[in-house]
């Protein structure tokens, strides 16, 4: 009993520690949401100032990759959810398998986003600066669009990389987790889903708004 319910000395019980950890991660996610807030706000603000040029930029993005990546992330969160449910039933090997799938899907997102999409865009001269390849009236607005694009996707990618590291750590540490005691799996899961949510806001900003008008 006391082994299964090990807890740090400031808590009254393992359950107490678990609840506290979950509160902590929710609060952290609130902070993260406000961290991304100014990007979304200034993005929408800047587009409002020059919508047509922004949309010229938006139409140069690769919708196919964008859709594929969205599917990958949603699937990954789903896989993580299955893994989390399985450890709740004490099925550790099942959890490891599903978390590995989640990890692979996340890694595929990174590969597609930065290995393929970014590379193409960089080679097409879409990175803002003197060599920016969109000319004509929309140049400055499109440039601003791509500034936001690279900035936001880089930051999102960084979060995803950290998430991949955390996932790997959970998989390596899998031995520790039991049906009663798997708080870290839960905590990392919330973070992993949060990254997904950020992407679900970025996706329309990047790929859809420019095509809609």
């Amino acid at each position: 009993m006391s082994d299964a319910a090990a807890h740090e000395f400031q808590f009254a019980s393992a359950e107490h520690q678990r609840e506290t950890a979950i509160s902590g991660i929710w609060l952290f996610l609130a902070t993260e949401a406000l961290f991304f807030g100014p990007i979304f706000l200034s993005w929408i603000f800047a587009r409002h100032a020059d919508p047509s040029a922004f949309d010229v930029g938006g139409r140069r993005t690769d919708l196919t990759i964008g859709l594929a990546n969205t599917a990958l992330l949603i699937a990954s969160s789903f896989a993580y959810g299955v893994g989390l449910a399985l450890i709740g039933f004490g099925r550790r090997r099942g959890m490891v398998a599903w978390l590995a799938i989640a990890w692979a899907l996340g890694a595929a997102f990174i590969g597609l986003k930065f290995g393929v999409e970014w590379r193409t865009e960089l080679s097409e001269g879409l990175f803002p600066g003197a060599h920016f390849s969109i000319h004509g009236p929309a140049r400055s607005g499109a440039q601003l669009f791509f500034a936001f694009y690279f900035f936001a996707t880089a930051l999102h990618g960084l979060h995803l990389l950290i998430g991949l590291g955390l996932l790997a750590w959970i998989i390596i540490q899998a031995e520790r987790f039991t049906a009663e005691n798997h708080t870290p799996v839960h905590v990392v899961g919330l973070y992993w889903t949060f990254i997904d949510v950020i992407w679900l806001i970025l996706f329309p900003l990047i790929y859809l708004i420019g095509r809609a008008s």
Binding site: G37, A46, G129
Partner: peptide, 29 residues
């Protein structure tokens, strides 16, 4: 605090890459 953190990050980005989220000369506010 996270709002400030991101604002300063955008500022640094603007200063390094010369892309104007905030500078009116290149489309910012």
């Amino acid at each position: 605090t996270p709002v400030l953190a991101m604002t300063l990050l955008l500022l640094a980005f603007e200063r390094i890459f010369g892309i104007g989220v905030f500078d009116p000369a290149i489309g910012g506010d």
